[in-house]
């Protein structure tokens, strides 16, 4: 098993974006998503695109990783564009190609919609690229904290997430071990029809489930033995602190928002 196994897409690094408080990143992304829908002019789109691309470059994450994150949605982006191009018929006919008329308005609409889509995905993927899952968990717990008044189980949710993260590598190692053990007994995972291969998964899944339940039970006992009795009265060793750079980023983002709104038509 790879020693430096990374969960999800996180690419460790030391850029400004990496070192920001995860709450800063989540909040900026949240408002960015909203602001993207306000843009409606060349200038406003230009500012937001420059901001998103600039941020992506500032993370110093290799662009191939960024592209990988976008891979599953390229199809959607292009599909949205083509759908608008061929289906909606608004505005003047711009030109005709092979007897098919292209309308100006649908070209613009398709373009802006795809651009919006691209910006949203690009910017949100920067969060998972530059923030470790446990930091994201901490940030979610901190940001959802006000919901506690509404009896929303914030602490329990965060604990569930962090325990899942903790056990992903363990269960992956176990799955590997079981699949080897079953293969040595003659289970064939690689050949045969799709149905055969699907049913070959069962002798892998059942032992994995059984052991996961056993682990859960033992973990619960160990947690209780160590005095765990829910989130009440608990302190945390992982602290989130807003530094000057976070305030700077908020300020900078505010100016971007202002500029976007200001250049709307």
């Amino acid at each position: 098993m790879n020693n430096s196994m990374i969960i999800g897409q996180y690419v460790p690094g030391n850029s400004l974006i990496h070192r920001l408080d995860p709450r800063t990143k989540i909040l900026v992304i949240f408002f960015f998503v909203i602001v993207v829908f306000f843009a409606n002019s060349v200038w406003s789109y230009g500012i937001l695109t420059a901001f998103a691309v600039g941020t992506a470059l500032a993370t110093r994450v290799p662009l191939s990783f960024v592209a990988k994150g976008l891979k599953p949605v390229w199809f959607l982006i292009i599909f949205t564009f083509l759908l608008h191009l061929f289906v909606s018929r608004q505005g003047d006919i711009l030109f005709t190609l092979l007897g098919f008329p292209f309308y100006e308005e649908s070209l613009i609409q398709g373009g802006t919609l795809s651009l919006r889509f691209f910006l949203l995905i690009l910017f949100t993927s920067l969060l998972t690229l530059t923030t470790s899952p446990i930091e994201i968990t901490d940030a979610i717990e901190a940001l959802l904290h006000p919901l506690k008044k509404l009896r929303f189980p914030v602490h329990e949710l965060a604990l569930m997430m962090s325990i899942s993260l903790r056990f992903i590598p363990t269960l992956m190692q176990e799955a590997e071990k079981i699949s080897k053990a079953q293969a040595s007994r003659g289970v064939d995972f690689r050949t045969g029809s799709l149905k055969d291969r699907m049913s070959a998964i069962i002798p892998l899944l059942i032992p994995l489930f059984v052991s996961a339940f056993k682990r859960a039970e033992e973990l619960a006992m160990a947690m209780e033995a160590r005095g765990y009795q829910g989130g009440e009265g608990r302190t945390k060793i992982r602290a989130l602190v807003f530094y000057r750079k976070d305030y700077f980023v908020f300020f900078f983002f505010l100016m971007i928002v202002a500029a976007t709104i200001g250049t709307r038509m």
């Binding site: 962090s162 903790r166 973990l219 947690m223 765990y228 608990r234 945390k236």
Partner: peptide, 18 residues
């Protein structure tokens, strides 16, 4: 099955946090 934290430090702190 008794390692609760995602890192050594988090795990050692678990009891104290409680």
């Amino acid at each position: 099955n008794q390692f609760v934290g995602t890192t050594v430090r988090d795990d050692i702190a678990f009891g104290m946090e409680n």
